[in-house]
Every structure is written in C-alpha cells, then in structure tokens.
Amino acid sequence: MPTPEFFLRTLRADADRLAEVARLGLTAEVPCCPGWTVETVVRHVAMVYLHKIEAIQRNARPEPWPPAGLDDRDALELYDDATARLFAQLAESGPSAPSWTWWPEDQTTGFWFRRMAQETAVHRVDVELAHDVVTPIDAELASDGIDEVLRVMMGGVWDEGDSKHPVDASIRITAAGRSWTVALTGTEVTVTDGAEGEVAAEIFGEPAAVLLWVWGRLDQDAIQIAGSEEVTQEFRARLKEATQ
C-alpha cells in the first residue's frame, strides 16, 4: 500500500483540481451520475470531508448527521472550508491515531488518509467529465484504488439476501502487471493477490481505466474483457451494490 504521505500528496492535488474545474460552472451535469451536477459533487465531497473530521475528533460514528445549516452555504465556500479543515485534521492526527471507521480491520486515521484520497480522485473525474477536461489519475493511486474497492468495499461476508446478484463464480482483474482473483458466492467475496486458478472472466486495462470502470464512471469500452460476458455484468452489478 502507498504511504500516508503519498495519499496526502495525491489528495491535495485532486482536491485542488476538483475546485479548479468546479469553478468553470456548477450547473454542468455529470454524465456518469444521472441527476448530479457539479454542484452536487462539490457539496457531496464537502460533506464527506466534514463527516470524516468528526469521526476522527470523536473516535465515534458522527451522529446525528448532517449538521443543520450546511445546505444554506455557498457550495464552493463550503468545499474550501471543509478541505482546509480536513488537511488540518489529518496533519494534527497523523495516520496512526485511533479513529472510528466503518471497516473493522482498520480503526485508525490512516484509513481516512487512503479513503479520502480515493474518494477525491473519483469525484475529481466526475467534475472533469462534466466539463470535458479529464486528466489522468496517478497510476499508483489507481492500482491501490482497485485493491481498496475489491478488499474493503466488496470483500468479506454478505448476509443472505443482501445481493440481488449472487453470482457464484471467480473473476480476475489485471492492471499494470498486478492481478486480483475474486471468488464470489451469494454470501461471501474472497479476494486474493495473483493470477492462480481458473476464472470465468478476466478484465484487463490501465489502472485508471479499471478503477473508473469498477466505480461506474467508464463503460466497458475502456477495458478489455475475456470470458463470460454474463459473469462480468453480474460482477459489475455486485460492485455497484458494494459501493453505493
């Protein structure tokens, strides 16, 4: 996994870029997110930042949430304030301090260093797509983002009935020489490194393209697929359930 310093550096670059592009116009529609405008993205990211600040400060899930009055604030002003406060909080806490997170395996602020870098990279692309000025995602960040989606968002035990897409198959993702093999059932998703074993489908592509595909920002034209189209579609639907 990349270092906390790497996450901070990419987070800063993407947060700044998001604000820069948002100032081209808040009313532009985000093509990959029906019903969202640039303003929707800006407000969403600001609220996410503020939520994580509270999670770190309280070392508990922020409740009640959200605070009153935030909807009345100018979107870009709110975003700039939230961004400044997030970086101040991360600098003060460092990556090893205890913090509530929704992932039991990591209850430190380091989780939020990673999650906020990944969150911001994807939403930076959202506003860029709205204005047709897309720039690349750092390849190392994108590769880590694929790992995060598979292991943190999707991996683990699913209660029966949690998925409307209980595909029973294995699928492999390969990007920039790194592979993940994902075994799925209706009640469990297991992720292992490497390309061992047979799979029903394989997905290939540059790390950024694969990352944006798993997050539903690009369609299948951005990647390469070998094997079962049906399994691939069910896998993508299961990813959507895991990341909503």
Rank of each mutant, 00 (worst) to 15 (best):
G69N: 06
A222H: 06
D138K: 02
E5S: 15
T181H: 06
R151D: 01
M1T: 12
V41I: 13
R124T: 14
A201D: 02
L86T: 14
D81I: 05
I56L: 10
Y79S: 13
P64G: 09
L90E: 03
M116C: 12
A91D: 12
D126Q: 00
A91I: 04
A130E: 01
A208E: 13
A97I: 07
L78Q: 14
W36T: 08
P64M: 09
A175W: 01
C32M: 08
Q233H: 08
W103T: 09
I137G: 01
A142Q: 01
A222T: 07
S96T: 13
T190Y: 04
G25W: 10
E148H: 04
Q107M: 07
L70C: 10
Y79A: 11
V157P: 00
E119R: 02
Q220R: 11
R178Q: 14
P67M: 07
A82H: 05
W180Y: 14
W112V: 04
E198V: 13
T109D: 02
L8I: 14
S228I: 10
T187M: 06
P98V: 14
L78N: 06
V199S: 12
R9A: 15
D168Q: 11
G194L: 14
V210E: 01
L50W: 00
E20S: 11
E230V: 12
G216Q: 01
T37K: 06
F113Y: 11
D138Q: 02
V127I: 07
S93F: 12
L86I: 09
A97Q: 02
M154Q: 03
P67T: 10
D144P: 00
I146V: 15
D72V: 08
W215H: 10
T181L: 08
L11Y: 09
A237H: 06
M116F: 06
R124M: 09
G205R: 03
R178H: 14
D80A: 15
R115N: 06
K240Y: 02
T187P: 03
K240C: 03
A222K: 02
W100T: 11
T174N: 02
G216T: 04
A130Q: 00
W215A: 05
L18S: 10
R172D: 05
W65R: 07
Y49A: 13
L239F: 04
A22R: 06
Q118V: 07
G161L: 04
A19S: 15
S96F: 05
T243V: 06
A226M: 03
E234R: 05
L24N: 10
R23M: 09
T40H: 14
R151Y: 03
R12A: 15
G177P: 02
V21S: 08
L239S: 04
F235A: 03
Q57C: 07
A84S: 14
A195N: 15
E196Y: 03
H51Q: 12
G35I: 12
T190H: 11
L90V: 10
R238H: 05
S99Q: 04
V231H: 03
A82P: 03
W100L: 09
T187I: 12
V157F: 04
E230T: 13
D162G: 05
W112T: 02
S163M: 08
H123V: 05
T10G: 04
A60Y: 09
V30Y: 03
R124N: 07
E105S: 11
W102F: 15
E229P: 03
F87S: 09
V167D: 05
W213R: 10
